[in-house]
Amino acid sequence: MKTKRWDLSRRTFIKASGLACGYALFGVRMAREGAARVLDIVGLRQDSVHKADANPALYRYRKSQNNPMVKALYASDGFLSEGPAGSLSHELLHTHYGDRSASIEGIDGLRRY
């Protein structure tokens, strides 16, 4: 009788610990699911960007103004000889924006800011 009871409780204990393991596994899997998992990947890609910036074998220069092909573009005999934000720059490289708020008027359920 006593042994039986002990057996039972031991089996219950094993069952309970098995369950606990199961839940722990669930927890890990769920924490890494969806958006959180995506952020892991993003972190790895971001690290790689910063490492490349600091790696002279990949990028000899770290500042845009030191890039020889940028210097050549803005040189006094270069294509953009007026320098950055000159009139040709404004023609080719700058733009303008338009108010689009009318395009969503009357659409219900949008996040209104």
Binding site: R45, V49, N66, N67, M69
Partner: peptide, 13 residues
């Protein structure tokens, strides 16, 4: 229009 710098690659993050 080819050489780039560390500053240029940083635009990705």
């Amino acid at each position: 229009l080819g050489i780039s710098t560390g500053a240029g690659t940083l635009f990705g993050t």
